[in-house]
C-alpha cells in the first residue's frame, strides 16, 4: 500500500493493516475536504506533491513513530482533484494501550503537515482559485481566475 494515492482511501483497510491481537487500542485521524477557508466558500481542491520526497518523508515519519512508541502505524494521503467531503489523509495507529496510540497519531499528522512536500490548490465559489499558504496572513495566495494548475509539478 503506497503512502500517496490518487484513488479514494480505503479507511477500513488502512485500519485493518495495523490490527494485531496484542494491540488493545486503535486510534485514527481523517482529514476531510471542507467547503470553506477563511470565510470563503470552497467548491473543490487539488493536491499535488513532490512525490518521491513526500513518499520518503512519510516513511521517515512512520519509522520515527514506530521507534518512539510501541505502535503499529499506517498512513495514506490523496493526490489530484478532490470533492468536498472526501478523505484527503488517513492515519491509523494501533498500540497496546490508548495513551501511546493517541500521542503517536497526533505526532504523525503534525509532522506530516510540517515536513511533507504536498500542496493544495483551492477553487472558490466566486471563480477564483489559489494555492493554500499556511504562512500567509489569509492562508491562501490567489491566482488569476482560470489560471491553469501546473500539471507537471503535480504529477512528478
Amino acid at each position: 500500500m503506497g503512502v500517496l494515492t490518487r484513488a479514494p482511501i480505503d479507511v477500513a483497510g488502512l485500519t485493518k493493516s495495523v490490527e494485531a491481537s496484542g494491540r488493545g487500542a486503535i486510534t485514527s485521524f481523517l482529514g476531510v475536504v471542507r467547503n470553506h477557508h477563511c470565510g470563503r466558500e470552497v467548491t473543490r481542491l487539488e493536491y499535488s506533491a513532490y512525490a518521491p520526497m513526500a513518499e520518503a518523508e512519510c516513511e521517515r515519519i512512520l519509522a520515527e513513530t514506530s521507534s518512539r512508541w510501541p505502535v503499529s502505524v499506517a498512513l495514506q494521503h490523496r493526490l489530484g482533484p478532490m470533492a468536498i467531503g472526501e478523505v484527503s489523509v488517513a492515519i491509523a495507529v494501533a498500540g497496546n494501550h490508548r495513551d501511546e496510540a493517541f500521542v503517536a497519531c497526533r505526532y504523525v499528522i503534525e509532522e506530516l503537515k510540517r515536513r511533507v512536500p504536498i500542496w493544495k490548490r483551492e477553487y472558490f465559489a466566486d471563480g477564483t482559485e489559489g494555492w493554500v499558504d499556511p504562512t500567509a496572513c489569509d492562508g491562501v495566495v490567489l491566482a488569476k481566475v482560470g489560471e491553469v494548475t501546473n500539471e507537471g509539478s503535480a504529477s512528478r
Binding site: 513526500a54 503537515k113 515536513r115 504536498i118 493544495k120 494555492w131 504562512t135
Partner: peptide, 10 residues
Amino acid sequence: VALLPPMAGG
C-alpha cells in the same frame, strides 16, 4: 535541488 513552497498537506 528542489525549492518548496509552504507545505499544505493534511
